[in-house]
């Protein structure tokens, strides 16, 4: 009886779902302006002691599977970082609502 839990959403090493998906070597896609902004904010918050890489990981890895795969890379980061800042009271949760 194998009672190993299924891998978490982000744990993609060897995932059968993507076994036949090609990797596109030409897909350089350097970050766009959105990605660079999110990345810069992450670094500034980290330097100011407001965010650790492990906190950011928790926020990304807790995303529901459908959302994880639907969102772009830096969109996942933004969901995580903004949520953590609200959770820690650095900003207000209402600040993020439309």
């Amino acid at each position: 009886m194998d009672d190993t839990p299924p891998p978490a959403t982000h744990d993609l090493g060897g995932a059968p779902r993507f076994r036949c998906t090609p990797v596109d070597p030409d897909d350089e896609a350097p970050p766009d302006a959105f990605g660079k902004r999110v990345d810069a904010i992450r670094q500034i918050l980290a330097r100011k002691g407001l965010l650790t890489v492990d906190e950011m990981r928790r926020g990304i890895e807790a995303l529901p599977e459908a959302e994880y795969h639907a969102l772009g890379y830096y969109e996942r980061w933004l969901r995580s970082i903004s949520g953590i800042m609200a959770e820690k009271g650095v900003i207000g949760a209402e600040d993020l609502r439309p």
């Binding site: 993609l12 090493g13 995932a15 779902r17 993507f18 998906t21 596109d24 350089e28 896609a29």
Partner: peptide, 12 residues
């Protein structure tokens, strides 16, 4: 690069 972050590269 984008491919390094892709699900296919990470899985395969």
């Amino acid at each position: 690069p984008h491919w390094y972050k892709s699900a296919a590269y990470r899985a395969r």
